[in-house]
């Protein structure tokens, strides 16, 4: 029950950002929503199903380019973002069907290769994507700085709300039950009648959809994308770290982890310009060592209780 309260508080708290009228704060809140979408999505395949995907950046870039190319053709923003989600679902289902027979490190490396593959395709298909020169995405209209910041903030925020609801429904449903069985003992799961290929592929495809939609919103938000930016490997790594911070296996944990990470990164970066990456790295190492089940297990650790994952 408490996780619904935490999620409610987080969503309402984020939605208060525009009330401050501070565009810097809104930019941070938009970024926090974007990463929260990606961390919660990663949790579906990496946390719930136990397949450590490093393909998040592939779907982010795929979504950014799908939506960006459609926008240059004059397609409206909501349609282009929905299209990014549909394309990512299909591509993720195909990639997942092929790669989900690999496990552990092998699966991680294969998904990482997908990021490189899509980046090279985006680099080479100059006619479509602009290649290394990047792609300019036209503004819908000149709204003014604050109205535009609000538009993209609420687009990301709405996407986060949608992602959170879908993740929570999946966790509680028959699908989540099946994924949990697959994570714990895949052979035994098959033996009681679970079509593991189907459920794993579905989880992977769903984990791609919202990431791609976030990429679509991002492309319109920053008006210019290039392969190195939207297929950046950090877009793969950060959501994993965020989910680890929140506690692997819980979508609300992943969302909280994303917000904590973005806030910490910003504070550390502003105060320790020279050594910010080092401090973030040390913080992550400390968390994994002393709080391996994430912030979600903090109250158990403080009361000295045993933590079961």
């Amino acid at each position: 029950m408490s996780k619904y309260i935490i999620l409610g508080v987080v969503l309402v708290g984020l939605a208060a950002a525009p009330l401050t009228g501070d565009t810097y704060l809104m930019r941070m809140a938009t970024l926090a929503c974007m990463y929260a979408v990606m961390a919660a999505s990663w949790n579906l395949i990496g946390g719930l199903t136990g397949y450590p995907s490093f393909g998040t950046a592939a779907f982010f870039g795929l979504g950014a380019y799908t939506s960006g190319i459609l926008a240059t053709l004059g397609v409206a923003l909501p349609v282009s973002i929905a299209a990014a989600g549909v394309v990512a679902f299909v591509v993720a289902a195909i990639i997942g069907f092929i790669l989900l027979r690999l496990k552990g490190h092998y699966f991680a490396i294969a998904t990482l290769a997908c990021v490189e593959l899509l980046r090279e395709i985006a680099n080479s298909a100059t006619d479509l994507t602009g290649g290394g020169m990047g792609l300019n995405i036209p503004r819908n209209a000149d709204l003014g700085i604050f109205a535009e910041a609000s538009l993209f903030f609420f687009a990301m925020w709405g996407l986060l709300a949608l992602t959170a609801v879908v993740c929570l429904v999946v966790e509680r449903s028959k699908i989540g039950f099946a994924l949990s069985c697959i994570r714990q003992a895949e052979g035994a799961a098959e033996m009681i009648g679970i079509n593991s290929t189907l459920y794993k592929t579905l989880a992977f495809a769903l984990s791609g959809v919202f990431v791609a939609m976030a990429g679509g919103v991002y492309a319109s938000w920053v008006h210019y994308i290039e392969p190195g930016d939207v297929f950046d490997i950090l877009l793969t790594i950060k959501p994993v770290v965020m989910a680890l911070i929140g506690g692997v296996g819980s979508s609300v944990g992943a969302i909280v982890g994303a917000i904590v990470y973005i806030a910490a990164e910003e504070v550390i970066w502003r105060n320790y310009l020279d050594f910010s990456s080092g401090i973030i790295g040390l913080t992550v190492v400390g968390l994994v060592l002393f709080l391996p089940h994430g912030l979600g297990s903090l109250h158990l650790r403080l009361r000295g209780k045993a933590v079961t994952p």
Partner: peptide, 13 residues
């Protein structure tokens, strides 16, 4: 149906 020689329960359930 089958049982496994080395039991494979879903340990976290």
């Amino acid at each position: 149906a089958r049982t496994f020689q080395i039991v494979q329960p879903f340990n976290q359930m």
